[in-house]
Each structure stands twice: as structure tokens, then as C-alpha cells.
Design a protein around this nucleic acid. Structure first.
Length: 477
RNA sequence: GGCCCCAUCGUCUAAUGGUUAGGACAUCACUCUUUCAAGGUGAAGAUACGGGUUCGAUCCCCGUUGGGGCUACCA
């Protein structure tokens, strides 16, 4: 199924860190646009002057850029389009679809609270709906600036959602909401309609939390005599606690994922699968495949819990499929992004080019690579406690003796290679008539401080003879 | 509280008015292996409940329960 001249947008409010919910919504819009050869627009909804920051707007653009989500138009800033909105408010007033409201916020707040304690439903009581001219004049004389409210017409309001089907709400359940604040700044529900119309949006894909706003917006489209776009309300991404993602959920900002060492492609793939599935048991997909397979019809109705473990698994999949050069670049980019300095003495390009692919094979995030790299780029070893317990403390004298024997053997080696160091160990093992593991494990522990890592003899070569001899002589207790 | 949305393994999901309800992550075994990771094999694990409709419902309808969202002169 292909749509004609698709135009979609994301319209984030720049009021904080960009989190994965926004990223997923952006991704779906982006995929939908690409799939239909349409246009993807970014519009910054900064009508809340108190909370909006340019910094946050930039972070959103950067964050999406990191994910490889590019837009074809924008960013448009609503704060720069204020003049445009005025005439439409005026028009609503003239056609009696809206009215001026002089109620103070304090009074409304009070009423709301009272209703709450009395367990009554509060809705604006339309006190200002039928104000006479003289009443209005009196308020104006007192210097009270009016807000503009939309008059919700009687009867049910229905819209057809591409994912949920028809959804209806009765007029009594919709508030005469404020379209223009008393300070003259229009609100989200008002400008979103104007901009979506003016920008010729054909589809609005956004999270289900906007369903209740949609009724207000549909009414606005009607009042202004415009056709509405098609709506599709996406399921929410929930945290482990099954609540909507918010600031409370710590590691959920894009920046945080980047710091933790996740790859944008892996995150995109994972996010795509949160609320959508291509069927046929497909999971790991390239971006091109994603664009090709994506369709609104296969978006789910129910919310999805963000499963960090699965993301981590998928990230590992991507890391293992990367070629060495790309992996090294991703790793060094990550170092730069997190401002992680490597000790220059050992952290040479040469070492990185050998070590990173080897370590990357057994890591799931870039941060894990860094951690596993530590023994090779620093002489400040910390020894794994359970490793010491298992491979050393049970019989320290014997182990020390064996390590010393191995040290003596490899000190004499003509060449320092994976083969030669292994051959030396095999010989020693035979001479001592013990299992190879009895030597391998303590040696690994002594030279890396760890019980896990790349194959031992690769580690030895990576470290170089000098450091290996040094470490074999400096035993843990 | 009111309104709205939702309901398949712990999690992400697939499927059909008739299937042994499939896959993935996670878990647990076993295997491979110098460790770890990866790989291989296998195990355990779901149609929330109650009514209908139907020859037959996980699937369609209603209700219950549960979860979620919204309930601003935020978006």
C-alpha cells in the first residue's frame, strides 16, 4: 500500500532531554515518510515559553541526527510564527466558535481543588461564555487580559484512528480549553492544528497520550472549516515499572544510551520493534529493510515495556557484525563523546586495532569494550577476587612456583608469538604432568587480573613480553 | 473519581473461527572451549476471568478484572 504525497512531522516540545519515546515516534514518522517517498518535517513546539529552551531544541536535533533520523524540512519554530496564529484566533472569535474568558488562573485553580476534594468532576464552568459587552468592558477596564477558549459544541465528537479505529467522546467530557493564553501566546492544541494544516500534513503519527487532545483538535479543524489529517496513535513505551517513560526513568535519554555504549543502528532496530513487527519472525534488520517493511497496519495497539536486556543483546549482534575498522571508529568516537582518556603510553593505534576487534567479539556495548581493554592499556591491575580464591589462594606456593617456571620458559623464547608462548606452556604442562588449565588460569589472572577475556596467548602477545614477565613476577596475594 | 486506550510466555512479539499457539530476549540444562563471549542442542514458560455467538473460539460480541494514558492559560 502506498500513499500519495505523504507529509508527516514530529513536533517535540524542547523542554528537556530527548528520550526514547520521542525517538521512537520520530523513527516511525521517518520510516513512514521514506516508505512512501514522502516528506518528514521537524517542528519545534515551543509555545510554552517558560519551559522551552533552545539548548533542548538543539539536543533533539543532535540526538535524532545521531540515530540517523534526518528530516526533509524544518526545523520550524512555533515561537517564530506567532503573528500567523493571531488571525485564526480572531476568526474563531468572530464565528463564535470561541469566546474570551476573564477568569483568573487563581480562581480556576481554586475551583479545581474544591471539586477535587468534593470528588466532583471539574470542567470549565463557562462563566464567561455569555458575557455582555459592558461586563467585558469592565474587566478590560480593570486591566484583566482575557484568554480565548474554544466553545465545545454539543454532541459527540468522533475521529477515525488508523490504529484504533473510531474513537468517540461526548461534549460533556471535553473542556472548553484555552486556545490563546491571556498573555496572547497560543497553546499547543491550537497551534498544532494551524501548523499541521498550513504545513499540509497528511498523517499525524504520535503517541496515544494525545488521543484526548485529538478531540479538541478535530473540533478546531471543524471550526476553521479545514479537513483533518489522518491520525495514528502509537502505543506507549513503558519503563520496567510499566509506567510511561519520564524523567523518573534514569537511563532513558538518548544521551544516556550513547554514554552507555549503544550503537545508533542497534537502538533504531530495537526501537522499531517496540510497537511494530514486520512478521515472519524477523528481528535484526538493516535500515533499508526497516524502511521497506514498515507499515502502519502492523503497528500494535498495546503498550510495550522497554527491555534493556534485549537492547543489549541486539547491540551485541550489531557489534559482532561490524567490520573491524567500523568497530574501532565507533569505539574511538565513543571515547571522545564520553571524554574518556586512554593512557597514551600503551593505548596506541596499533594496540587498539588489534585489541578492539578481539575484545569486541565478546562485548555487547562499547563501554564493555573499554572495561575489557583496561588491563592492556594500564599497569594498574586489580585482581578479580573470586579468581584469586579459585586459582591462587588454595595453594599459593605451588601456583607461584608454576608461574615462575612459565616465566623462565618464555623469557628465553626466540620469538614472541601466539604459537611460541602456547608451545612453551604446553611443554611445561607436560613436564609437570598437570592439566593445562592449572597453568592457564593463574597466568591469565596474573597478567590481566581477570578470569575472563580473549584467548590467553593472544593476551600475552598483545601485552608484549616485557609486561608479561613483569606481571608474572609481581603476583597477587 | 470521570473519560479514553489496551489485554498471547517474565519481556518484545507471530498466528488462525479448527495449529502440538511459532519466534526473539531473559532463565535453566547439556555441548563446544584454556576462560568469557559467540555457536549448537534441549527444557521450562502465555492466549486474565465470566458469559454469550458458533458444530467449534485465543481470535467475534458483552461484562468483570487488571494495566496504562489523559483529566493545565504543559506538550
Amino acid at each position: 500500500m502506498s500513499e500519495e504525497n505523504v507529509r508527516v512531522r514530529i513536533a517535540p516540545s524542547p523542554t528537556g532531554a530527548i528520550h526514547v519515546g520521542l525517538a521512537r515516534t520520530a523513527l516511525y514518522n521517518y520510516l513512514f515518510a521514506h516508505k512512501n517517498k514522502g516528506t518528514f518535517v521537524l517542528r519545534i513546539e515551543d509555545t510554552d515559553f517558560d519551559r522551552s529552551t533552545e539548548e533542548s531544541a538543539q539536543a533533539i536535533i543532535k540526538g535524532l541526527g545521531w540515530l540517523g533520523i534526518r528530516f526533509d524540512e524544518g526545523p520550524y519554530y512555533q515561537s517564530q510564527r506567532m503573528d500567523l496564529y493571531k488571525s485564526y484566533a480572531e476568526k474563531l472569535l468572530q464565528t463564535s466558535h470561541a469566546y474570551k474568558c476573564y477568569c483568573t488562573q487563581e480562581r480556576l485553580e481554586e475551583e479545581r481543588k474544591r471539586a477535587e476534594t468534593e470528588r466532583r468532576v471539574w470542567r470549565y464552568d463557562r462563566r464567561c461564555l455569555n458575557l455582555t459587552d459592558s461586563e467585558k468592558a469592565s474587566f478590560e477596564a480593570q486591566g484583566i487580559k482575557p484568554a480565548i477558549r474554544l466553545r465545545i459544541p454539543d454532541g459527540p465528537t468522533t475521529f477515525s484512528d488508523l490504529i484504533h479505529g473510531e474513537i468517540t467522546r461526548e461534549a460533556k467530557d471535553i473542556d472548553d480549553f484555552v486556545a490563546v493564553r491571556s498573555n496572547g501566546i497560543p497553546t499547543y492544541n491550537f497551534v498544532v492544528v494551524i501548523d499541521d494544516h498550513l504545513m499540509k500534513m497528511t498523517h499525524v503519527l504520535r503517541a496515544v497520550e494525545h488521543i484526548s487532545n485529538t478531540f479538541k483538535q478535530v473540533l478546531l479543524y471543524k471550526a476553521l472549516g479545514w479537513d483533518e489529517p489522518k491520525f495514528a496513535h502509537l502505543p506507549l513505551i513503558l519503563g520496567e515499572d510499566k509506567k510511561k517513560l519520564s524523567k523518573r526513568h534514569g537511563a532513558m535519554s538518548l544521551d544516556e544510551f550513547r554514554r552507555l555504549g549503544y550503537l545508533p543502528d542497534a537502538l533504531v532496530n530495537f526501537l522499531a520493534l517496540l510497537g511494530w513487527s514486520p512478521g515472519e519472525d524477523r528481528e535484526v534488520m538493516t535500515r533499508a529493510e526497516l524502511e521497506d517493511l514498515f507499515s502502519l497496519e502492523r503497528i500494535n495497539t498495546s503498550n510495550a515495556v522497554f527491555d534493556m536486556q534485549k537492547l543489549t543483546w541486539m547491540n551485541g549482534e550489531y557489534m559482532r557484525r561490524m567490520n573491524p575498522e567500523d568497530l574501532i571508529r565507533a569505539f574511538t568516537d565513543w571515547l571522545a563523546y564520553t571524554r574518556t582518556e586512554l593512557p597514551s603510553e600503551y593505548a596506541t593505534q596499533e594496540l587498539l586495532s588489534k585489541a578492539v576487534p578481539m575484545i569486541g567479539e565478546r562485548s555487547r556495548t562499547l563501554a564493555e569494550i573499554y572495561d575489557a581493554l583496561l588491563p592492556f592499556i594500564s599497569d594498574d591491575l586489580t585482581y578479580d577476587e573470586s579468581g584469586l580464591e579459585k586459582h591462587f589462594r588454595k595453594d599459593p606456593d605451588t601456583v607461584s612456583q608454576r608461574l615462575k617456571l612459565y616465566r623462565d620458559k618464555i623469557e628465553e623464547l626466540d620469538e614472541w608469538t601466539v604459537e611460541s608462548t602456547e608451545e612453551a606452556l604446553r611443554q611445561l604442562v607436560e613436564e609437570l604432568d598437570v592439566k593445562a588449565g592449572l597453568l592457564i588460569h593463574p597466568v591469565r589472572l596474573a597478567v590481566t587480573g581477570r578470569t575472563v577475556g580473549p584467548p590467553l596467548f593472544d593476551c600475552l602477545v598483545l601485552l608484549g613480553r616485557e609486561r608479561v614477565l613483569e606481571r608474572l613476577g609481581k603476583l597477587p596475594r
